[in-house]
Amino acid sequence: MLDTTPMTTLPLAPGVGFKSSHFTAISEDPGDVAWLEIHAENYMGDGGRPLAQLNALAERFPVSVHGVGLSIGGTKALDTDHLERLRRLCDRINPASFSEHLAWSTHDVGFLNDLLPLPYTEKTLTHVADHIDQVQDTLGRKMLLENPSTYLAFAENEMSEIDFLKAVVRRTGCGLLLDVNNVFVSATNQNTDAYDYINAFPLHAVGEIHLGGHDVQEDEHGAPLLIDSHGAAVADPVWALYAHTLKTGGLRPTLIEWDTDVPDWPILRNEARLAAEVLETAK
């Protein structure tokens, strides 16, 4: 049977990662911002301001729920309590999209609150695909899986990241969230070509694009080492790579992420305007 459930119903327009401090400003002057993304874990309390703000926003904007704590890339079984909380949150606001990361964060030592890398092997592929099946079955919706930013590689890799993601899509029917900043960061750190990555990427499966800022450092051998900080404006080469992505694969809902050193609303709104211009040019 042909599965025609959409990956996402987000508009082909810019969105931003919602920060509580922007609540009033967004309501008054959203600018080009047509949708909002929330980090699921921040809305898993029982009540109070976070859920009240979310209810108000969800009445006005399409909302994308973006999980950062499920540890889909881990070898441990998924935390079913956490998955149940995700189900309740999605049932509460019926988001336009649900996404999570190709990464892990939970281990025997605890929850490490970072998106940690995994080797690309048949074994990890089985874990990831099983986890995504479980998520999609529990939530009753398709999810998008985000490509990671990486700082190192696993010598044990049996396949490329792109072949890994393609296999995940094939096995689970999930969509992909293409983080163009992550592509640029990883390609620089792995000394590969970001444009080759985009050209080889299964763009047909992409339901959403992420853009964000990174920090520039060097490793101990003097090689460039970019850090996916989400704490700065989108860098020029990332805008160029984004324009290339749209030209190659078509328009996609595009999120500006700015999670640390969060700027005043007009600065974030302006990043969304820049994304709107690139989207307009690519039409």
């Binding site: 490490l112 940690l116 700082y151 190192l152 590689a153 010598a155 044990e156 090689a223 080492l225």
Partner: peptide
Amino acid sequence: KGLVDPEGRTAGKRFDVYRNNV
């Protein structure tokens, strides 16, 4: 062992990025 940079050298500062992030 087995965490490497693009030249195949053992990751040093690159692993420390994760340490620091966490």
